[in-house]
Design a protein around this nucleic acid. Structure first.
Length: 1029
RNA sequence: GGGCGCUUAGCUCAGUUGGUUAGAGCACCGCCAUUACACGGCGGUGGUCGCAGGUUCGAGUCCUGCAGCGCUCACCA
């Protein structure tokens, strides 16, 4: 089996250091940064797919002579990794807070070490030609230096700020989440219609809400100014029930009017709206905006754990309201509804199904929560604008807004190109609607924010300014902000200011940290969003900002940034691609990569995304185990079309018997189809195994008796069969080359030889074109047809009788084999490398027009060069006729079930005999001919006729006696087929509009084709008539 | 709700600017243990290209509408 040798092959590559990039080496630059996989878990097939394509690109360009770097590494994945580690600790009955921060980080570090090793092992197992000597981790020293410098620079430049904003708050893990870390889930809820009385006793208004508990923080009620009731209410105030707070009625366009009062009936909100909207700025993002517009207060009534609290900004707690303080948000909701009911202020309750944001981490509803967080001002033109200006002009939809289009020019403007092009639109729309990026996370695992803060009265802070004067401004930046609203205050204005302020000091390194702490400053406990460090990946992996600190990184930054292409899935265009473009351009003034290639997603057999939590991800090691690495890669490459996600039906392998079987599927409560946690062995139900779903969800833990089952998929048979075919073809070719006859002579190139060389030249061009367009399935297709259809089915079969005595043909065979191994190498590196030395060791003649530079390793071999002279159109056309003739004869043999051993005589006219002669024996070999003769005057009784190119070809000796009935049926069917074809063409030619409007060449071709088909019909009819007599 | 994509043979998918008989692999049927390969060879069966309109000499391909599926962004009155 070809896959046996994979380990040995890897050892040879390592020994030769053939994937190590040296920036000083010659060649065009070709660089790829791996999308660093999260260290949360082992890689699945989605990663295998992503990396197979990157390796194909890398190896292809390496063989083209490029100076290549494929930069590997892993991502610390802040929230995700901390979560998995916390879950594991929970199984041991421990919580994060049972540890010190340092001790906990140590635990996470252990997990990271384990999975980083697993991931790198998987990459090697897949044959990835990464420069493993340069492997980075987003939290290693090099990356940490880059993160620190980037944050410091952004802070200094005013692009990082502290803001009091509503964030997506996870009350369980008590951290802010980025917008994209919130998952929407459909929830059955209710609409509660609450009455708020007017202060003047003249009645009430009714508001509708899905979250009655937030009413404690209401500071206004809004009404649409067009609402007919608005005028009468203008200037009036409401008495907020329970709290007793007097709140204004404000007028705002945002409010949807009920359908009955002229609201748009198509707007679902108009169906249930009352026209009055309670405004709770501290607990709803839209209300926050309304509050800003009308200058009403934001009153936070919740503690960070989501309970009702009077200690986080709520001061006017009435005696009536006291009973709700301390309740969870769920309990508070029930009790507040009950209170309204008791007091006759609950008008109505309607059931309502709507989607609610849930934490992707703890899966509880996210609370919009007012808190202080750090933001990157990505809305600034220096970030957003540079990203938009980077786009290739022809991929921009419409025109960029003029303020962006007229922004400062920069290297790389207009050079960022997406493949497929439609994804450019995603990128553009994201930036056109971008909002500032919340980058602080209340976690322990990550890059800690390098800001020290002291809070106090302005005058007190001003007095400690003196001590800060000693700080080196190139290593420390000081800023002040009002606590009340987070607004920046100039340091010079601080002494005159009043009220509480924050003094923030951002440090480039920790050297001055203890000095600040002795002054009463405290370091921010939060860490940065994972994507902050990911955004720097094309910079940090190359030693930015100061490569001189790491001697082995000298020259990397200038050589490999910008890189050639980023290969990734569409889901992270916004999270990652955008931010890399913004940061790379901001910090370095260039693009991080010129191309963005977005590939399909790998789904399971039920069309579901492979996910860690579902456990439906397939480990590439399972597929390597069942099919081999090359087979996996070839199959994945062949599935890489640019429109369609890949659906992969997955089977299970019984660990007890090694049998492959289809597991029992179940549907989870969330509606996913997964393999039941425990599966019985197909032949012996007493033996059991655990599925990936069982292991991932913790429903079942694998043990020695009930082990984890591997997965496999019949889809990979394609690749396995292909690798096997190549293996056997090579063996056969080698045996012919080593057993050449002593009398072997040079000879002119046969048609078959010329055809094979032309096919190689053609395949190489098709390959290059497909790679340039990132259409990888066309690469697999070109290789499959070249190796299997052309080389094995026709060339190897065709040369069998002649190759041992024809030295020229041996040279062509050896050159073809050598070129095929080279071309196949980027897709199937292991089998080609294993076979390589055998083929390289051949003493063989050269072939004119084929340049095959010698190389010790296939991995470092040069791409085969084919002269344009090999592009022999005549040979291609003539051999196509040979194939058509052979096919026609084989078809009759197949239909008549003639034994392959049976040799037959062919009788035909001059042109067919000339074609057979020019084929150099190929027709005789492939069609099983014993002799070729001229058409006789009298048709032999045992001859069977086939029409070919408009004339009759007789096959004699095919059968002992012609079965007239069967022959009639065969010929009649053939005639019917051709008649159908002819009538279609005839109809066309009789259509005057076709003659008049279709291109003349096409009309001419139709005429020619029709004449040929008609001739075939005539020949077949003649044969039919001969049968009748 | 906005955007994007998909719907082609039993299954998984190709099908480049509209062009002559819509392809592949698997599965299925027949023949073949022929000296590279049964993970093989040769031959075959199988599709009114989601539905309804339109443009065109000509539509799987372009346009409009509809239906279903998926992804993504937005949305908790």
């Amino acid at each position: 089996m070809p896959s046996d040798a994979e380990g040995a092959v890897h050892a040879r590559w390592d020994a030769a250091r053939c994937f190590h990039a040296e920036p000083s080496a010659p060649g065009e630059t070709y660089a790829i940064f791996i999308p660093p996989p999260n260290v949360t878990a082992a890689l699945h097939l989605g990663h295998a797919f992503n990396n197979s394509l990157q390796d194909l690109l890398t190896r292809y360009h390496r063989m083209q002579g490029a100076n290549t770097l494929w930069m590997p590494g892993t991502d610390h994945a802040g929230i995700a990794t901390q979560t998995v580690v916390e879950k594991r600790l929970l199984l041991q009955g421990k919580k994060r807070t049972d540890f010190t921060r340092e001790a906990f980080v140590e635990k996470v570090q252990e997990w990271k070490d384990e999975y980083e090793a697993t991931i790198l092992g998987q990459l090697k197992g897949m044959g990835c030609s990464c420069d493993f000597e340069r492997t980075r981790f987003t939290m290693d020293e090099t990356c940490a230096t880059a993160v620190r410098y980037a944050f410091f620079t952004l802070f200094k430049d005013g692009l990082v700020y502290r803001g009091k904003r509503l964030v997506n708050w996870d009350p369980v893990t008590q951290t802010a989440l980025a917008d994209d870390e919130v998952e929407m889930e459909e929830v059955d809820g209710s609409f509660w219609y609450l009455k708020y009385p007017l202060v003047d006793g003249s009645g009430h208004v009714t508001v509708a809400t899905t979250r009655p508990e937030t009413m404690l923080g209401d500071t206004a009620v809004a009404v649409n100014p067009k609402d007919p009731r608005a005028a009468a209410l203008r200037g009036k105030k409401l008495r907020l029930p329970i709290v007793g707070r007097e709140i204004p009625i404000v007028e705002d366009d945002y409010v949807v009017m009920p359908a009955s009062l002229g609201g748009d009936p198509a707007d679902p909100k108009a169906q249930f709206a009352t026209g009055f909207l309670k405004v709770t700025p501290a607990h709803d993002p839209n209300d926050w905006d309304i509050g800003q517009r009308h200058n009403v207060a934001a009153i936070n009534v919740m503690a960070p754990d989501g309970s009702i609290s009077d200690r986080h900004g709520w001061l006017d707690v009435s005696a009536e309201a006291k009973q709700f303080v301390g309740l969870s948000r769920e309990e508070a909701r029930k009790k507040i509804v009950a209170w309204f009911k008791q007091n006759g202020l609950l008008e109505e309750v309607k059931p309502y199904r709507h989607s609610v944001g849930h934490s992707y981490r703890s899966h509880v509803p996210v609370e919009p929560y007012l808190s202080d967080q750090w933001y990157v001002r990505v809305t600034d033109d220096r970030l957003r604008g540079t990203a938009l200006r980077a786009m290739a002009k022809d991929q921009v939809e419409g025109a960029l807004e003029s303020s962006v289009a007229n922004g400062p020019a920069m290297a790389g403007d207009g050079e960022l190109r997406f493949f497929p092009a439609r994804y450019a639109k995603n990128f553009q729309m994201w930036h056109e609607n971008i909002r500032d990026w919340c980058i602080s996370r209340q976690l322990w695992w990550g890059h800690r924010i390098p800001v020290w803060t002291k809070r106090g009265e302005a005058s007190m802070l001003a007095s400690s300014m003196g001590a800060l004067a000693s700080l080196d401004p190139s290593h420390a930046v000081v800023r002040a902000a009002r606590v009340v609203d987070g607004a920046d205050v100039a340091l010079s204005a601080l002494p005159a200011a009043s009220g509480e302020h924050d003094l923030h000091v951002c440090l480039l390194d920790d050297a001055q940290g203890s000095m600040l702490e002795s002054l009463g400053f405290k370091r921010d406990p939060d860490v940065l969003d994972t994507w902050f460090s990911s955004a720097l990946w094309p910079l940090s992996t190359l030693g930015w900002p100061d490569p001189s600190k790491w001697p082995e990184m000298a020259g990397l930054l200038d050589r490999y940034n910008p890189s050639s292409v980023l290969c990734t899935a569409r889901e992270i265009i916004t999270l990652w691609v955008s931010r890399m473009v913004m940061f790379n351009r901001y910090f370095l003034g260039r693009l991080p990569f010129k191309h963005v290639f977005i590939h399909a997603m790998i789904q399971d057999g039920h069309g579901q995304k492979m996910s860690k939590s579902l456990g439906n991800g397939v480990d590439p090691r399972d597929i390597i185990h069942s099919h081999g690495s090359d087979a996996m890669r070839f199959t994945l490459v062949s599935m890489a079309t640019n429109t369609q996600d890949v659906r992969l039906p997955v089977d299970m392998v019984c660990p007890h018997t090694s049998e492959t079987f289809t597991p029992k599927w179940i549907t989870t409560s969330a509606g996913y189809t997964v393999a039941d946690a425990i599966q019985p062995s197909p032949k012996d139900a007493s033996k059991k195994m655990v599925s990936g779903f069982g292991a991932a969800t913790g429903v079942a833990t694998p043990t020695a008796e009930i082990p984890l089952a591997r997965n496999t998929s019949a889809r990979f048979d394609l690749g396995r069969n292909f690798a096997n075919k190549l293996w056997n073809a090579t063996r056969f070719a080698l045996s012919n080359l080593s057993q050449a006859d002593a009398a072997s002579q040079p000879a002119p190139l046969t048609l078959l030889d010329r055809w094979m060389l032309a096919r190689l030249e053609l395949a190489s061009r098709a390959y290059g074109a497909a790679v340039a367009e990132y259409e990888f399935h066309r690469v697999a297709e070109a290789l499959y047809d070249l190796v299997w259809r052309d080389f094995c089915d026709w060339y190897l079969e065709g040369i069998k009788p002649t190759v041992r005595s024809n030295a020229t043909q041996q040279a062509v065979l050896a050159a073809s084999l050598d070129a095929i191994l080279r071309m196949l190498h980027p897709v199937c590196p292991f089998v080609t490398e294993t076979l390589w030395s055998n083929v390289q060791g051949l003493a063989k003649g050269s072939v004119d027009g084929v340049a095959l530079q010698p190389s010790a390793l296939c991995a470092t071999a040069a791409w085969p060069r084919f002269a344009a002279s090999l592009r022999d159109e005549k040979a291609l056309a003539e051999f196509a006729r040979v194939q058509a003739l052979v096919d026609a004869i084989r078809k009759v043999r197949g239909e008549r079930q003639v034994s392959p051993k049976r040799r037959i005589a062919l009788l035909a006219g001059e042109s067919v005999r000339a074609l057979i002669a020019s084929s150099g024996g190929v027709v005789e070999t492939m069609a099983g001919l014993e002799s070729v003769g001229a058409s006789p005057a009298a048709r032999p009784a045992t001859a069977v006729a086939i029409p070919f190119e408009g004339s009759e070809v007789l096959l004699d000796g095919l059968v002992d006696a012609v079965d007239a009935g069967a022959e009639k049926a065969r010929l009649s069917k053939l005639i019917a087929d051709r008649e159908k074809q002819a009538s279609g063409m005839r109809a066309k030619l009789e259509n005057e509009a076709y003659i008049a409007k279709a291109p003349p060449a096409l009309v001419e071709e139709t005429r020619k084709k029709l004449a040929e088909v008609d001739a075939d019909i005539a020949a077949a009819k003649q044969a039919l008539a001969a049968l009748a007599t």
